[in-house]
Design a binder for these strands. Structure first.
Lengths: 348, 348
DNA sequence: ATGAAAGCGCTAACAA
DNA sequence: TTGTTAGCGCTTTCAT
């Protein structure tokens, strides 16, 4: 039984603290002290250890450290689609807060699929992220109960948790939509369409509710042919718009329920007016879009970065031990009048 | 029957395989078999184990597993800014490839700061990511040499590595810019400005080189007052544009070196024409922008998703053992003529 | 089919 | 100031 053999080089044959210790002629713990900047090492010893570290190309294995310390200094963010600028901004804001806390962020896109959301969230839990921010795709989050009980701090963002009492940071979808539709009413519109996301999505339902409230506030009837919740792919949105813009009593204004709907609506309405010479249709969108200012698109702007920052701050508050009851933070929206929402109705 | 005492609850008191084994009345290894779907467990035993798992809310600790197995099933992506739609799309494409390989992705934004890029990349190495995709902020990547030697597969995307021989997946910045500027020349422009990113950035330098090549191809002189590389913040870009659009011999067309420059240029030029009633200025931008089609912005489009997908595929090829020499893949660009690049020069 | 023991690379607790 | 020992929770190996 000679020296310990290393039959299976792991991590592509990386040196360990033990290797560094052997090379520097010191004990394992001394290396650990140097690597972690702990006190109690003479400058001369430290020098030798550092020399060995450089010579060997040693880098501490955080997996082992995590196993011992019980904290990964990592949080997870489950969102819908990182390629959507809204979530990109939100994620970036979360990252900044995490960075300020010496923490890394693992993102995962659910692609709006509840099963994929669940898989992702649980995979992150298996990696023992310290905390989790979830932008729900599904509406039943009881699968997270054991995780939360086991100590994974969890904050929901953009949409609340389903069947679970947990922290949530949301935009004021109801109020924002109500304000946006009221804006159209104030400019003389009486037949206003609503194109939004699938009604199973909390924010979509809230915005639809805001639309109905504004119409009712104004004493205006809602023809159900004007209301088109559903997927936000361009084809569906274009078809929905075509439907409510045709017939004997077409809408004179449209409220778009999110940024993707708005983008498609801008395309469709611009095409109608330019190519077909149709009458201009007023448009207000929920959520801002890039170059919306240049295009003159009136929107109810959310603050994606604020949403992400607030959610992350709440998460770290929990990680630092805050034990108050779950709370819901609602972030206000701002109506930005840029032209498209101030077009008067084109006909009786 | 005394319960197993757990003096120091880690991970917020999570049950371990040992706990599950005790509760199910089986050995530790049997639990491991069930959890990992290994054969050699009778259905009855498996049932009891699963029961214990559910009752306890057990979830395997992947940190411990990683320590033993040597693979984290995680890759890292260091990019510039996740809030930039270009990188959002790139990251999303990387994520999809990773997902197909059962791998998670950790993103980090360098904010175009070389030191922060280095910190991030090394932090990811300390967590023993299996591989790394880096979009360089700095121009010296020798700090990654020990990591690569130790087995961290590394692929550079969007920009090549500095002072390091490694895989890289790039857009054809030189060719794309040359084509875009030639397009302006073909529409009669002779005084063409260039507003791009800082020349230290490889892609920015390449695009500037493409601009000069196209001018030379056409036998046109370049007045250095028309060339404005630098930071891409709106103020700098607006000032640069103002400079080259004034004076006795103003430019009649502008080539914008990336999406942020293009967005600002669209704003500035739209404002000039609308408010000041100035003559229209032609514009071609490198990289597409959202709603660029509606606005009629002519661009040289890159394929950010293709860039990310290709880089990720190359990374997994390496992880699966491909040992060929480092290779460079160049992805072509496409000129999308939409109006702004086809405006003729407004005056002699 | 099942389980006991060793050990992955590190840190905490305690000796020297 | 420095080193030794015992795990963290899991997989691997080898016995039963």
């Amino acid at each position: 039984m000679a020296e310990t053999p290393r039959p299976e080089p792991r991590y592509g044959n990386r040196p360990t603290m033990k290797d560094v210790a052997a090379r520097a002629g010191v004990g394992l713990k001394t290396v650990s002290r140097v690597v972690n900047g702990e006190p109690g090492v003479t400058p001369e010893t430290e020098r030798r250890v550092r020399e060995a570290i450089d010579a060997l190309g040693f880098r501490r294995n955080d997996s082992a450290r995590v196993l011992r310390k019980g904290r990964t200094a990592t949080i997870g963010l489950v969102l819908e689609d990182l390629a959507d600028p809204f979530y990109g901004q939100l994620s970036r804001a979360v990252e900044e807060v995490a960075r300020a806390h010496g923490t890394l962020l693992i993102n995962g896109s659910s692609a709006e699929d509840p099963e994929r959301e669940r898989e992702l969230a649980l995979a992150l839990c298996a990696r023992r992220v310290d905390g989790l921010i979830v932008i729900p795709a599904g509406d039943d989050h009881r699968y997270l109960e054991p995780e939360i009980r086991a100590g994974v701090a969890t904050v929901f963002a953009d949409r609340p948790a389903g069947l679970l009492h947990a922290d949530a940071v949301l935009s004021d979808s109801f109020g924002g939509a109500r304000e946006g539709v009221a804006h159209l009413v104030a400019h003389g519109h009486r037949r206003i369409g609503f194109v939004g996301d699938r009604p199973g999505i909390h924010t979509a339902a809230e915005r639809l509710r805001g639309y109905r409230a504004a119409m009712e506030d104004a004493g205006l009837p809602v023809d159900e042919r004007w209301v088109a919740p559903g997927p936000t792919d361009p084809e569906r949105v274009a078809a929905a718009l075509a439907g409510m813009l045709s017939g004997p009593e077409p809408v004179t204004a449209v409220f778009a329920g999110n940024n993707r709907v708005t983008v498609t609506a801008v395309r469709v309405l611009a095409g109608r007016t330019a190519v077909a010479g149709g009458p201009p249709v007023a448009l207000v969108g929920f959520d801002d879009v890039e170059l919306g200012d240049v295009l003159g698109v009136t929107v109810v702007a959310q603050d994606p970065a604020g949403l992400g920052r607030t959610a992350a701050q709440q998460l770290f508050r929990r990680l630092e031990g805050a034990a108050e009851a779950p709370r819901r933070v609602v972030i206000g929206t701002r109506l930005l009048a840029r032209g498209s929402g101030e077009v008067p109705p084109s006909s009786g």
